[in-house]
């Protein structure tokens, strides 16, 4: 008798909990659990160039916001840099490329409409098979 009444109470409590959960979910409280409003970016450089910085560039190219100000030698990983870039942006990777018989050449690669979903992003940069290009892959 007592056991069945306890089950009934537990069911009512569960129903109340589900209702409370739905209500809080509706008001946006729970979206924090599965949406990250910032991106924690770490870059591994598997290319032959040295990465000297990663910036977000405005669509007209007139304005630049730095994201990573660090030198990442070939074969190295950067620290984790957290910024509020969540969405789709144009990225510029600044590199120093080795040049045969001469001093190194400084250059940059622009990647358009790169999507960042928020949370931890591990970006692997490698040489492209097509040459004079970088291959980017989120892992």
């Amino acid at each position: 008798m007592i056991f069945s009444s306890m089950i009934r109470s537990a069911r009512r409590l569960a129903l109340l909990a589900v209702f409370a959960l739905a209500t809080f979910g509706l008001t946006g409280c729970l979206s924090h659990w599965f949406l990250d409003p910032s991106t924690r970016l770490q870059v591994e450089n598997r290319s032959s160039s040295t990465i000297v910085g990663i910036d977000v560039v405005s669509e007209d190219g007139s304005s630049i916001r730095p994201w990573i100000r660090d030198t990442i030698a070939p074969g190295e990983r950067s620290r984790v840099y957290e910024e509020d870039w969540v969405g789709t942006f144009n990225i510029r990777i600044r590199v120093i490329e080795p040049a045969s018989g001469k001093a190194s050449v400084e250059g940059s690669y622009d990647i358009e409409d790169l999507e960042f979903d928020g949370g931890s992003e591990f970006l692997v940069v490698s040489d492209s098979e097509k040459g004079h290009r970088l291959h980017l892959e989120f892992k």
Partner: peptide, 23 residues
């Protein structure tokens, strides 16, 4: 009252840098 738009893709923000996910 309050507006309710549960998806980040419903009202993103367009800035000179691109499209930001948000509400």
């Amino acid at each position: 009252g309050f507006n309710y738009m549960p998806l980040v893709s419903q009202t993103p923000l367009k800035s000179e840098y691109g499209e930001h996910d948000g509400f």
